[in-house]
C-alpha cells in the first residue's frame, strides 16, 4: 500500500454531488482512503471516533457550518493538528480572511480542478512536513 493511499481523508459537504466529485478527484490523485460526512456535526462525531490525517470541508452547510467545524477542530487538543482545506463557494475576501484567522490550512473556491486540489494538498502537506 502506497503512502498516499494510507492517508485518511474526511470529506465534509452537504451536497452529495460535491462529496462524490471530491472523493473521485482524491482517488485520482492516489488518496483512496476517504470517508464522507454531510455536515459539521457528523464530521465532528467521526473525527472524535476515528483517526484522520486530512479534512476537506465545505463552508455553507446546515447545522454546524464549515467555519464552525474549523473552529471546533482547532480548539480540540486531539484534532487541532489535522490539516483542513476549505472547499467552498464563498469567494468574498472577508470569508477567506475569516477562514485564515480560524486556522484553515488552505482555501479553494468552487468550481475547481483536480490540478488545483492536488497543488493545495501538496502545499499543505509540505508545510506540515509530512512525507508524500
Amino acid at each position: 500500500m502506497s503512502e498516499l493511499s494510507k492517508m485518511r481523508f474526511l470529506v465534509v459537504d452537504d451536497f452529495s454531488t460535491m462529496r462524490r466529485i471530491i472523493r473521485n478527484l482524491l482517488k485520482e490523485l492516489g488518496y483512496t482512503n476517504v470517508t464522507e460526512a454531510e455536515d459539521g456535526n457528523s464530521a465532528l462525531t467521526q473525527l472524535n471516533r476515528d483517526s484522520f490525517d486530512f479534512i476537506v470541508s465545505d463552508w455553507n452547510m446546515p447545522g454546524m457550518d464549515g467555519l464552525q467545524l474549523l473552529q471546533a477542530v482547532r480548539e480540540a487538543p486531539s484534532l487541532c493538528k489535522i490539516p483542513m482545506l476549505m472547499v467552498t463557494a464563498e469567494a468574498k475576501k472577508e470569508n477567506i480572511v475569516a477562514a485564515a484567522k480560524a486556522g484553515a490550512s488552505g482555501y479553494i473556491v468552487k468550481p475547481f480542478t483536480a490540478a488545483t486540489l492536488d497543488e493545495k494538498i501538496s502545499k499543505i502537506l509540505e508545510k506540515q512536513n509530512k512525507p508524500l
Partner: peptide, 16 residues
Amino acid sequence: KSLRQEHMGSGDVELF
C-alpha cells in the same frame, strides 16, 4: 453577497 466567482476555472485562491 458571497457567490461572485470571477474565474470559472481553477478555483485557486492565493492567500495561504
